[in-house]
Design a protein around this nucleic acid. Structure first.
Lengths: 200, 200, 200, 200
DNA sequence: AATGAATGAGAATTCATTCAT
DNA sequence: TATGAATGAATTCTCATTCAT
């Protein structure tokens, strides 16, 4: 019961940190900012987090959890490749976009902080890529997709997600407005390509 | 002659800033760090740049210049779409990768600093995207590519470049080692898609 | 109770600032000096004052308050002009001299800082002069004083106070030792003049 | 001939220093400011003055010279006290007001810099006061003026000059506009006093 | 457990002064 | 002699963290 209160307070501070980090960035955000946003005193934050950096790790943990859930997504046997791909992308968009603020909060620091980077790579990036590689490997062996450079292709596809998020974080209006069209458009792009087939 | 010396000194400081920012990030990098790296006294930096932030803008200018050059790339009339695409991607890779450190230096701050972001969007991002949109529009009207959602497609393709860079900046080993394979792999992926065509 | 502590701490820092500014002048005085004199850490000063300049405004406020009290001095109906004048000068000397250090602390900067000057003029100088002008005007209308150029006369008298302070601040020994003689001597000087009357 | 050029250059720099110090105060004024105002390079100033402080001493020297000239004023035997007093005050106003900018340049620093203060006191203040004291002593012995506390009276009169200058430096408009009325008004004030004589 | 005042290390920036050209 | 770029000491101010209440 006390434990619940503790967790709620922790979450409240983490929410505040996400908001403030997303708005101002890790360094420009002060503990005072976060405390005010969370409605607690400066010192209280240190009851729940050892230091400012730990707030960042807390946010990363949240992203990780949400990613864990995203990866529990499994392929219904009956779906064909096209439907599966689109369904998967849909799922990804639905799990990524609500966490955009958290991503915005950690990403800049992620690019700059080796320890954080290492954690992110180990816990999120590499598992995600590994699973995708295995999936593509299977598909190739089953003759469903063209033979390609799997590692690079997987990274290009994952990267296009990443890149779209990046563009949105950089203020691109189109993506923000049309992110629900992403699964279909990317699905078609990656499965069929751009080129008309008749003259291939 | 004096003017040359001035330019060289400015460049030397900017090089140092790129190195240090890329290594530690904008905020953790101190003027002292940059001065030491450049082999000058702290105060000297302020002869060439009004403040720390201006160093960032200086780096952005460099990226901009290199981007300007990249966009002067023109389509040789005789090339077909495939060759052109790959050639263009090659060109992009060749202009982006050497500037990776500069990109690493500005990107984190770009995600967090509205003024810098505005500059980057206006000077680099939007022009690049606009040109690509026009190119794709042309191709579509000439029936060379499948009808698609151009704005989103362009952003997905641009984004996959961005995303690959991001992955590399996050420490992915594969991309670093194989970035020369990017043009061919991405060209094929975006033109032909993944799916085997016979059973489409 | 907490509020009392806050005020005391603020006063303690302001006292320190007065001492150090009076001793070294605004610019040569460092925050470190003031903090040491106040017996607090450098940073503590910024809990009570937004910046170094605000310390100066704080001192000015104090002078202002003491001046407000000085101006509440009112003429007992029964006193004749001579006794009133001397009593008033006595009062002025008694309110000015204890604040000499504060005046020494602000005056040099007052001569050089337009913002501070504007505040001082508006809040202290002009009200004081205005009141004196009205008083002299009344006296003149009642035939108690000779017809004179009131604005200039008022300024000459106020100025002689100011000037005596200035001389003391510049190290004159005589004034320091005999400032209790000021009211009588100045009273006589301004009321009767220097010249023997019989051969006027 | 070269020597003339040297002197001119020195004067040109000193003029610039007076202007800039008067405008911004000693500390806010930079060597760069003064160099620009003088139309020379920063380094050139150090050919003529050992350091920034010496510029101040240079200005003080000028004030001293002008004061020397003021003190060479001698009493024509035939004049009566009233005419002499007014003539002397006129002379003082004529020598002080043109140097107001120089005074504004040194005064704030004078209040704060013991070395400068010592010089000013020794070379200007004390000689001036000494001469006035002797003059008043003579007048008193000749029965021309009322018996008074000479040291304090002299300081009050000198101080009223000083005070008027101070008021003007603090932005008082009246004094600026009417400084030519000062000799007559102060002469009358100090000789005759304010009080109507008939009911004394 | 919560508070928020106090701390002081650390960073950006300024600017008097020097000195090679 | 004149120049002005280079220097680096010194200063203000910020803010993560601590700790007495």
């Amino acid at each position: 019961m006390q434990d619940m209160l503790q967790k709620a307070r922790r979450a409240q501070i983490l929410d505040a940190a996400i908001t403030v980090f997303a708005e101002k960035g890790f360094h420009r955000a002060t503990i005072k900012d976060i405390a005010r946003q969370a409605g607690v005193a400066d010192g209280t934050i240190y009851t729940y987090f050892a230091n400012k950096q730990e707030l960042l790790l807390g946010i990363l943990d949240r992203l990780n959890e949400s990613d864990q859930r995203a990866m529990q997504f499994t392929l219904p046997e009956t779906m064909d490749l096209r439907h599966f791909t689109i369904a998967y992308m849909q799922h990804r968009v639905h799990t990524l976009w609500p966490n955009l603020k958290a991503l915005q909060a950690v990403l800049p620091e992620l690019l700059v902080n080796p320890h954080l980077q290492e954690t992110y790579r180990r816990e999120i990036l590499e598992p995600t890529i590994k699973i995708a590689e295995i999936f593509f490997q299977n598909q190739m062996e089953q003759g469903r997709i063209r033979t390609v450079d799997i590692p690079l292709t997987v990274r290009a596809i994952a990267g296009s997600f990443f890149g779209l998020i990046l563009l949105q974080l950089l203020g691109d209006q189109v993506i923000e407005q049309r992110h629900d069209a992403i699964p279909e458009t990317l699905g078609s792009l990656f499965l069929d390509g751009l080129q008309e087939q008749h003259d291939d």
